[in-house]
Write a protein that binds this DNA or RNA. Structure first.
Lengths: 144, 144
DNA sequence: GAAGATTGAGAGCTCAATCTTC
DNA sequence: GAAGATTGAGCTCTCAATCTTC
């Protein structure tokens, strides 16, 4: 769990960073299943797509760079959760395919994630959630 | 800039993650100065401490593991921003000492950070900031 | 033995360069 | 040449093991 602990003092950004660190609630639950957030995210996209996806598309849906997916799938593959297969329609392309073990891991991971999120949700009122999205939207506007 | 882009869809955690990604505002400004958030954080702690700090203390103030600081100081050292010195009082200990270039980098970096934060602040009302800290506090409570 | 720091291995991320196939 | 994927180099971070000094 990397999670830039070093930056935890950027005055008001500290708030945002602290908020982000609740990710660790989910992270630790997933860790007991041998999963991580990036791994579960990949399995989720794969599952959503029916089990198979060219690496490039997976990268898009994960909103990250292709080389990142190459390595993520490497790890997933050595975990036995995914395998690479040839793409019949284009020999340049490689398909990431979820395995039976991958589906099981996905199911358990998704449940753990739902539960952790429910706990987080429970701590906030509807109004809190609304305010949070509003604030985030304002902040996002600066970013551009 | 690592910044776990892959996890950007954990339903409501997506909000928090999006918020955290405003860090990139600061990150890119620092990048033009050859700095990063962790590097600037280390220089800041050093500056606060009068220019010198045993690596272990630096790790504490940075709220991270010692081995992380070892490597961070390695990079800072090859940037010429910090040097390692012997600790006269304890031969086990090594001192990280900020250099003249390090002080200059700190000054520029701190200014860039202040400006970026001011821009972020400007986007929020006082009430927004208050609400945000409140929400973060609630979330933090779950984390335990 | 305990406290400093470092090293080794590995997860997660990025960019630039490369290789194959279209 | 452009689109797939991969590789190489590097940043940030963690944990476990090691080495030196107390």
């Amino acid at each position: 769990m990397p999670e830039s602990s070093v930056s935890c003092r950027t005055s008001f950004l500290a708030l945002i960073h602290a908020a982000a660190s609740v990710e660790s609630v989910i992270e630790s639950r997933l860790a007991t299943l041998g999963l991580s957030i990036p791994k579960l995210a990949a399995l989720t996209r794969l599952q959503e797509a029916g089990g198979t996806l060219p690496l490039g598309h997976l990268a898009e849906r994960l909103a990250c760079v292709k080389s990142n997916v190459t390595q993520l799938v490497d790890r997933l593959e050595s975990d036995g959760l995914v395998i690479r297969a040839a793409d019949p329609s284009d020999r340049r392309s490689r398909l990431a395919a979820i395995t039976a073990a991958g589906r099981r891991a996905y199911a358990e991971g998704a449940r753990a994630q739902r539960e952790a999120e429910a706990a987080l949700f429970a701590a906030l009122s509807e109004q809190d959630v609304a305010r949070l999205s509003e604030i985030v939207a304002k902040l996002e506007r600066v970013r551009a």
